[in-house]
Write a protein that binds this DNA or RNA. Structure first.
Lengths: 189, 189
DNA sequence: GTTATTGTTCACAAATATGTTAATAGTGAA
DNA sequence: TTCACTATTAACATATTTGTGAACAATAAC
């Protein structure tokens, strides 16, 4: 409950919104209570960080485990990353985390492996490296889209609707990319 | 000089590193001097924001105006975005800026238009929308790569060298994408 | 009902960040 | 030189954030 409010404050006011006084006020409780729960202001922030990260992983899981057609999955991923909660989380992690730590250890690893297998199976020759590159392209693009998509749209002079259609365009192109490359792979061998 | 030190503090310690006391200490001056120059702590931060943004635009201009072969340009863009100063800036902007403002008004607009023209010319049918999508894909991916590339690499189980080669792979694929799509466009019309 | 545990508030304290002022030193122009 | 202006410092003042401890209430276990 408190973390949900903190998350909204992060999305609305950035890191400066993450002080215990304001969060407690939004939650209608005394800031001492908040300290009692999380030990310290910093403890509250790390709790929020893991909480938001788990939420992101959960949302990604829901998309990837759904039985939606493959080409809508990319669209969903882009939509997911453009949600204020998630892209602010990624920006926050990028700013604060000095280390190159993976999002989480544990359940998400299995999830990623699962996607990797799925994509690899679709590639002639089952080129894992190619699959990794494709996924990397999709995810990094989705992240970049979420973080500075609107600004880029402005700079490129793209209309609102064109920006909205970009995810769909990407999800059309990526499978073609796989096929295209796999054909050249067949030529090579 | 002061802003350069502030920029290093942003890259090293995140937003919490951007307080006038620590910055002044790093610069070897009194924090009153810093206030005298920038008017306020907030004034210093906005000065840093525009300064870093201009640096980013300048670096992009240098790459795009160089006479390097077209396929190395994407690689350079990715390398640029992975530099600590630039990706932290983008994360900062994403966190603090509520508005969907373009990076800058002014010189960069002409720059982007220039790229757009260049790419459009290479497309059969001169499909501007397609060019915009391609550029959007390249830039958003570069941004995402800069912001959480290492974390994604970990999660995908990619080797260090494979991650390093990803930009080169992208710059191979994107032109193919143009050609591929332009052929279907010819079929359509 | 008593007890222990937990959650909560309040008043205050400590720490940190920001801003102010007066004094001083340099710098260039008249 | 003298004057005006700018840069700089140090000490102080204010504001904001975080943390502490005692007191009190609620709750569940015994």
């Amino acid at each position: 409950m408190i973390l949900a409010i903190a998350g909204k404050r992060l999305a609305a006011h950035g890191i400066r919104g993450l002080n215990i006084k304001d969060i407690a006020q939004d939650a209608g409780i005394n800031h001492g209570t908040l300290l009692h729960h999380f030990g310290s202001a910093e403890g509250m922030r790390t709790a929020l960080l893991t909480n938001l990260t788990e939420a992101l992983i959960a949302d990604m899981s829901a998309i990837l485990n759904s039985d939606a057609p493959a080409d809508t999955i990319f669209v969903e991923l882009f939509r997911l990353m453009s949600q204020s909660g998630h892209n602010k989380l990624l920006a926050w992690r990028a700013l604060e985390d000095a280390e190159d730590s993976p999002l989480t250890e544990g359940p998400s690893e299995k999830l990623i492996q699962q996607i990797l297998d799925g994509v690899t199976r679709r590639i002639q020759g089952r080129d894992i490296t190619l699959a990794q590159n494709i996924i990397f392209l999709a995810l990094s693009s989705a992240v970049g889209w979420g973080i500075c998509g609107p600004a880029l749209k402005q700079s490129l002079g793209m209309s609102r609707t064109q920006q909205d259609q970009f995810p769909a365009w990407v999800s059309e192109q990526l499978p073609k990319l796989i096929q295209w490359t796999s054909q050249t792979l067949l030529d090579t061998y």
